[in-house]
Simulated scan of single mutants.
Amino acid sequence: MTHNHPFIVGLTGGIGSGKSAAADAFAALGIEVVDTDAIAHELTGANGAAMPLIVAAFGPAMRGPDGAMDRNAMRALVFEDSSARKRLETILHPLIGQLSQERCLRADSPYVILSVPLLIESERYRDRCDRICVVDCPSELQLARVMKRSGLAEEEVRAIMAAQATRDQRLAAADDVIDNSGTLAQLEARVCALDQTYRRLASAV
């Protein structure tokens, strides 16, 4: 790459929209995907860089027997105590931001997909992206997919959806939209078309 800043496409979508399927389709075309969710899992896994900070802030009860963060215990805590959520975010967000930045810069592909669930809600990531690509489907379909996949009750899924940007807000922020209300093959065809566009845009930078 001639320029020292890779061309970054921010990929986002509400829960159950098919963002992971789209990211996988880009990866299958040889594009590097930097996924902030995966980085968060890494940081809170056994020997993860965030674990000493989490134990220092919340006590050893938050570390499971395998050395990773006890996700259920943490989920219960932040659900009941919003200040605990803030403390956890204060630990994780800077680390995720730093690691994702480093990985984008090191990426060795024509452009980089930066996959961020709350991209629209977070200026930190929005400002880094050259394009924003939103995976979209009707909210009732989102709801059905998440309930089927996670086994969560409808109220729980609706609560998660309510905490995210609305469909209209995401679409308003999008440069490109991947409609994922159809089949996986249709999703992959749309990704293939966008891949050509992004390669062209990246080479022109």
Rank of each mutant, 00 (worst) to 15 (best):
D81T: 03
R85S: 03
R87S: 12
L88M: 08
L88V: 10
T90W: 01
I91P: 06
H93V: 00
P94W: 01
R103M: 09
R103F: 13
R103T: 09
C104A: 13
C104Q: 05
A107V: 01
A107H: 13
A107M: 04
D108S: 11
S109A: 05
P110D: 04
I113Y: 00
S115D: 15
S115G: 14
P117M: 13
P117V: 04
I120S: 02
I120R: 10
S122H: 12
Y125I: 02
R126T: 09
D127S: 10
R128L: 03
C129L: 05
I132N: 04
C133N: 09
C133D: 13
V135H: 04
D136N: 13
D136S: 06
S139P: 01
S139H: 11
S139Q: 08
L141K: 09
L141H: 11
Q142V: 10
A144R: 03
A144C: 07
R145A: 13
R145I: 15
M147K: 07
M147F: 12
M147V: 14
G151V: 11
L152K: 12
A153C: 06
A153I: 06
E154I: 12
E154T: 07
E156I: 00
A162Q: 10
A163Q: 05
R167W: 13
R167F: 05
D168T: 13
D168S: 06
R170N: 02
L171R: 05
A174E: 07
D176G: 08
D176P: 05
N180A: 12
S181N: 04
T183Q: 01
L184R: 11
